[in-house]
Amino acid sequence: MSDSTERICRLIDGDTDANEGAAIHQERQSNPDVEATYHWMLFVKQVVSTKCTPKENDPLLATCMERIAAIEKSKRTETFVTRHAWALTGALAVVIVGGTLAQRSFQGQGLGDTQVASIVGGAAPARNTQDLDSIRAADAFRQLNQSLGSVHISPAEELRAVSMEKGAFEGRAFARLVVRDSQGEQFYIVAIENASGKLNVAGKKQGRYTIGQMNGLNTVSWCNGGVSLVVAGDSTPNRLVELADSIRADH
C-alpha cells in the first residue's frame, strides 16, 4: 500500500493539518492515481457507513438484561450479608439462646424427650461405669437406690444385672442399668433425677405409665417422687409394663 493511501485516508477522516491537506490536494491534480485513490477511499467510507447498519436483536437484548438482573440480585444479597454480618450473627445467636431458654421455660424443670432419649440411648456422658457381671441384680438395685436417694425400686427375681452407668446430663444425675431376663432379653432401666416430677415425653398414657418409643426401642416411663424412670427394650410394650410393675417399689 502506498503512503499516499494512508495520507488520503487521514485527510478524509480529518486527521491532517492544513498544510498536509493542501499538499494532498495538489498531488490529486497532478497525479491521476492519487485522484482515483482519493475518490475510492471516500467511496469506501461512504459505502461502509451507509450500508453497514446497527443490528437490532431483541431476544439478545432481553437475555443481557436478565443476566444483569441476576447479577444485581446476587450482588444485593452479598452486600446485605457482608454489611449486616454482625447483626445476622447476633440474631442467630439470639434465636439459638432464645430457643433454648424457651424450651427450658416450656418444660419448666421437667424432663424432656431429648434429654431422656440421650440418657436411655447412652449418649449422655457417664462418670462411672461398672461391669456387673459378678453382681446380683439385688446389689445393682441397691446401688441404684443409693444413687437415687428418695426413690426405691425393687429387684425382680428374674433379672440379671449386666452393667451400670452413673453420671449427670444437663445438670441431672442419672443411673442407667442394663439387665437381662431369664430368656436373655436385654432391657434398660434408667433413673433420672427430676425434682419437678414432670416428665414431658411423647407417648400414650396408660395408668401411671407413658408408653412410647425412643431410639428405636419401646419405652415405659413414669415418675416416682423426685425421679423419673424409664424401662426400655426391644420388647412389646406389655412386656415392658410387666417389667416396670415388677420393679416398682411403690406398686
Binding site: 500500500m1 491521476p32 492515481d33 482515483a36 467511496f43 459505502v47 461502509v48 450500508k51 453497514c52
Partner: peptide, 27 residues
C-alpha cells in the same frame, strides 16, 4: 492486499446498486 489498478472514479450509481449483504460480505 489487493492493489487497485483502476484510475476510474466510482460514481453514485455503484453505491445505489450495492446491496447491504454485498457490502457486509466485502467487509
Amino acid at each position: 492486499e489487493p492493489v487497485a489498478a483502476l484510475t476510474e472514479i466510482p460514481d453514485q450509481q455503484i453505491l445505489a446498486n450495492l446491496l447491504e449483504d454485498e457490502v457486509e460480505a466485502a467487509l
